[in-house]
């Protein structure tokens, strides 16, 4: 939040120093400016909904891909490595285009813009989630597994009650990073026509032709969203730590 407070006056000063700024286009005191701002803000709903849906899916898929990576069986580990290496190698923009334009030809299933975006974002992120989970689970000491075995817990219960609750506490900061990354990457889904923040800004630029001001507001929109996420993750970390203390 502090950063926003510092940035805003800075921009206003800049606008005073130079004749190139035209803040009228997003001036909330004028009808047109207020409408433009409202138009831009309506994209936030899709940006947030798409990012949250994608992160939930990618966490679940990431965990399901991470677990075989920890197996003693070579074939399971090979599955994990192959998935991670291939998915991680595809640029996310390429993945979005492939899922939206390519996948229907391959499978006959046409996803709408929202689900194509979610699918591409989640798929791409799941490879990173898998690596985060694998590292987090591997950081739990062998003694925890042995203690669980000594009281006859099966694999599922060992993971569910002993290993994952500890691993998730450790990887929470990394999961927060991924959510931030997801919010930013969701801007790429604008290329297939998703009505999110970036797309709204683009449309407004076309009609108003004030890219400097409109994209500056767009930057601020992402900044605010991400600062909120950061604060939320820090709050969650504190809460989990205090519940342990």
């Amino acid at each position: 939040m502090k950063r926003v407070i510092v940035l805003l006056p800075l921009l206003l000063i800049l606008s005073g120093c130079s004749g190139n700024w035209g803040w009228y286009v997003v001036d909330p005191t004028t009808t047109n400016g207020a409408n433009n701002l409202r138009f831009m803000a309506t994209g936030a709903y899709n940006t947030i909904l798409m990012s949250l849906t994608a992160i939930i899916i990618s966490v679940i898929v990431g965990l399901l891909v991470a677990l075989p990576g920890l197996s003693e069986k070579k074939a399971w580990r090979a599955f994990n490595r192959t998935y991670v290496e291939i998915v991680r190698a595809v640029p996310i923009l390429v993945l979005i285009l492939w899922v939206y334009y390519g996948l229907p030809q391959l499978s006959g299933i046409t996803l709408n813009v929202f689900w194509a975006g979610v699918f591409a974002l989640a798929l791409s992120d799941s490879a990173f989630q898998a690596e985060i989970f694998r590292a987090g689970i591997q950081s739990i000491s062998k003694g925890q597994y042995e203690a669980a075995q000594s009281i006859s817990l099966n694999y599922r219960d060992t993971m569910r009650y002993v290993i994952l609750p500890q691993a998730i506490r450790r990887i929470l900061p990394a999961l927060g990073n991924q959510l931030v990354y997801m919010l930013k990457m969701s801007s790429l889904v604008s290329v297939i026509g998703m009505q999110e923040l970036t797309r709204k800004a683009n449309e407004l630029v076309v009609s108003e032709y004030r890219p400097l001001e409109i994209y500056t507001i767009l930057v601020l929109e992402y900044l605010v969203l991400i600062l909120i996420v950061s604060a939320g993750v820090r709050w969650l970390e504190r809460r989990m730590n205090s519940s342990e203390a």
């Binding site: 925890q144 042995e146 203690a147 009650y161 002993v162 500890q166």
Partner: peptide, 9 residues
């Protein structure tokens, strides 16, 4: 166990 191995959480 030597290191107790209690579940810390």
């Amino acid at each position: 166990f030597q290191q107790f191995n209690l579940f810390p959480h």
